[in-house]
Design a protein around this nucleic acid. Sequence first.
DNA 1: TAAATATACGATAGAATTGGTCGTATATTT
DNA 2: AAATATACGACCAATTCTATCGTATATTTA
Lengths: 154, 154
Amino acid sequence: MKLSKKTDYALRVLFTLVEHYGRGPIPIRELARRNEVPKRFLEHIMLEMKARGWVDSTPGKRGGYTLAKSPDKIMMGEVVRHFDGVLAPIGCVSVTHYQPCSQSSVCRFRPFLLNIRNEIARQMDQASLAGVFSDSLRPSPETPQNPSADGCET
Amino acid sequence: MKLSKKTDYALRVLFTLVEHYGRGPIPIRELARRNEVPKRFLEHIMLEMKARGWVDSTPGKRGGYTLAKSPDKIMMGEVVRHFDGVLAPIGCVSVTHYQPCSQSSVCRFRPFLLNIRNEIARQMDQASLAGVFSDSLRPSPETPQNPSADGCET
DNA sequence: TAAATATACGATAGAATTGGTCGTATATTT
DNA sequence: AAATATACGACCAATTCTATCGTATATTTA
Ligand code: SF4
Ligand code: SF4
């Protein structure tokens, strides 16, 4: 589950909108500037998000984008899944994009991958933008700059 | 953390070698056939795995490949990380391939992604080939063909 | 009502990654 | 010496990713 830049961009903007929720639209130019996203590229991203019903747009002089629904009604999993297509590490353990594999009956590591998928999916689908946002406010016990290995690596 | 086909192929072959551990080499032709991996492609994969010290090769008439170390000394994380480069869903929360992001100080969802990374890394680095293999033998409580959603999706 | 400013959207394109083939060299066993 | 195995670099096609451009259209404000 590698996050594409597109997904990253989308999330940056969404959280900007969450932060500004209820205080009117923000023009795309501003969204692009604050989040360091190429503006013309962001247009497409916003289009998709509007189609999904996550954001609303108002054209005209003081127009821009606004969050279309309450931040606790949009799940991280939805967003990632929309832009990256799939959460699962491999097709054979994906629900939304399940792809059969002729080896699956003899495969020794599919159950292991399924576990990981389940864990990722659980975390992704339980986390709303609102939840992730508010969690990020209180200085968590551990959010190192460079996430130095705690026994593991990545 | 999307598994590339290369990684998938590598794991298939590794588990074949695990299953055959201690019973002599298996020629690459056989490894390719049993695991449905293009033979010429597999050559490169085996080369890399030999360089990493996971497998050994013996040329000649009754040669082939064999596991170079005990199956409980090779971790899933090592393999995936080698072929896919990185476990983390995004560079800014990666340990081995950490990549700074100018937004990280104001980013609202990096902590969330870090959590996911930690969970994936933990599972990957704690699981040895031997462990995954033996787990796959006892019919686990749940390993559905198509992993139908248990509240989550993929 | 005209100007300014906003979104809408398809076409296109460069770069990077992925997945794989081919030719050939070399080592070992029988 | 023949047969069979691995070793390895070059090469390539397809896909995906990331992004830009031109232009159309809708709305507000002066
Ligand atoms: S080999 Fe195992 S893990 Fe890879 S795709 Fe087939 S079933 Fe899934
Ligand atoms: S925006 Fe947040 S998540 Fe995306 S790369 Fe920068 S820090 Fe990491």
